[in-house]
Design a protein around this nucleic acid. Structure first.
Lengths: 326, 326
DNA sequence: ATGAAAGCGCTAACAA
DNA sequence: TTGTTAGCGCTTTCAT
């Protein structure tokens, strides 16, 4: 490959490499005439600086790592889309990696981030991640790690999460306000801290109001459908879904039974907002915005990079978005 | 930042930099004793090679660029997920960029890929991309470009697409087989070649069968819903949706009117398979698999990189997935 | 206003 | 088996 380099531009123009370099960066020392000459030559030859050389020399990669459990997940994609946008605006690039819920791949991804000398890492951990040492070691060499969504259960690291207790509380209160008598509540992976917290908050409020509640944990959408099929005959008057996946399963079950929403059964879910609008009536949901999370995570990263030693532990506020399902 | 480098390892061990380098790469010339010493020292100090230096020196980035219109799009995400997996297996990294349908951002992204000296580029262009010169220039300096999904309308470049004519043909024939009499067909962005081809194939088949057909182009899901609302009163007995977005809009309209599927109205769509399974009955669809597209695109890239001068112009075969909506 | 030279961290040809 | 050296492409200090 015959790439254009500063050396080549220097040879052709007869100027020294450093002059060419300066001219291209619009350095005040260089005469307008030279600048014009060099920039024209450069654009003629499609010169682009070799970013590896620049980074090696400047010891700065202007690169952030992003590790997510999966790239085929609407929520993480909304986070990534928002991170990408912020990064672009700030002249950073992103190296995006998926761990596919495998701690070994996660470890390899961390390694890659180290090798790339990323300026920082955004990470959502796998359910099986027991050892977060590799992450902490990054922090030791001044590579800040901002955990998001699935975060380790310890206080000495930056964490940006969607509201756990709050969103469950809003849902439970809405159910009470609407005088529902019997709830079917389906939660997600019971390993996650967020699930435990939501379960706890949700059930305790219903308990206060003396509302009957059937609870279950679903591993995925299909499982959620099974659960719905099993319990719908017991005629709950509202079903609470902790995730989009669960909502999808539940909706299939209610549609199959031709249950009218909200008359036969009400539905309320926690979601980033995509699925709920697919149905008629739209499903009432508590919004967990990936976009907001991304923006906030990026802000935390920038603030940490600019010297702040503050430990960020932020929660994306829950917003109730009313549809017609309750 | 006090990063561990070969130099540092060399100073500590008393060995030369090259010996350390070789020991770390398990070079046959180096004695087992030295290797052990060096690898232990390296792991103690968490040595990771500076990838910028490696790439600069080896003149190889082991990096592919990926440019998609949007990262908040299920189809592209499935393509990316599959590209990422293939890349990881082959020790490549991905630099993923979104153009948000803006040709200027697209141009900036191409520039970034050049600067990163990517080994190749996977790209899906914006509807407004009129000048694909910047892409072709990459090809000139031996950076292969594999276009996918939204590809330029010319024959001298690699293209991997989902089936255009085929998928529309399958849909039209299925409609005829089911003795439908009046079709509402909603297509996507009329600027895209794929839309034109599908429109052409679809309508001409219906014409052969003498089936009445109302056609429309939708810009997005909301627009599709409006169109459905406008035309459902004319009582079509089947609606064909060209994309997931359109399906979503149409389904909201049919649910609002409490139309029973497939009795009151049949539905058939082209989709990557996520949305159709959300409904009951599941929507019959013609599959356009992002995973398959990603794998095929990656294969084409590897074959091109290994010297093949063959122009890849591949189509992901259409598969009819029967739900209960027709 | 321009040039020479050093060095970022690494690999590899050549020397010992 | 190990060390020396040159150089990848760039930035930047120091000299001219």
């Amino acid at each position: 490959m015959i790439t254009t380099t500063l050396k080549k531009l220097s040879e052709i123009s007869g100027l020294s490499i450093s002059t060419v370099s300066r001219a291209l960066k619009n350095h005040p020392d260089i005469s307008e005439k030279t600048k014009l000459l060099v920039t024209e030559l450069a654009s003629m030859l499609d010169y682009e600086p070799n970013i590896n050389a620049v980074h090696l020399r400047t010891r700065d990669s202007r690169l952030f790592g992003v590790i997510v459990p999966s790239l085929s997940n609407c929520f993480y994609n909304s986070v990534i889309a928002s991170l990408e946008e912020e990064a672009r605006k700030n002249d950073y690039s992103l190296i995006i990696l998926q761990s596919v819920d495998d701690p070994d791949i996660e470890a390899a991804n961390i390694k890659l981030c180290r090798q790339n000398r990323v300026n920082g890492l955004f990470a959502s951990i796998t359910p099986e991640t027991i050892n977060i040492e590799p992450f902490l070691k990054l922090a030791e060499i001044d590579i800040p790690v901002i955990f998001f969504d699935r975060v380790p259960d310890r206080s000495d690291c930056h964490k940006i999460c969607v509201a756990d207790i709050d969103s469950a509380t809003i849902a439970a209160n809405l159910i009470a306000e609407n005088s529902k008598k019997k709830v079917l509540a389906i939660f997600g992976n019971s390993k996650f801290l967020i699930t435990k917290k939501r379960y706890q908050a949700f059930t305790s409020i219903l308990h206060q109001y003396n509302i009957e509640c059937i609870t279950a944990y679903a591993t995925d959408g299909t499982h959620a459908r099974q659960i719905a099929n099993d319990y719908l005959p017991e005629k709950p008057d509202v079903v609470f879904c902790m995730t989009d996946e669960i909502l999808a399963g539940v909706m299939r079950a209610t549609q199959k039974r031709k249950l009218k929403i909200p008359d036969d059964i009400a539905v309320i879910t926690i979601s980033n907002g995509f699925l709920p609008t697919l149905y008629y009536p739209q499903i009432t949901y508590i919004e967990t915005s990936g976009e907001k999370l991304g923006k906030l995570a990026f802000e935390s990263m920038m603030s940490t990079l600019s010297g702040s030693t503050f430990i960020h532990d932020k929660i994306i506020e829950s917003v109730l978005v009313r549809g017609g399902s309750i």
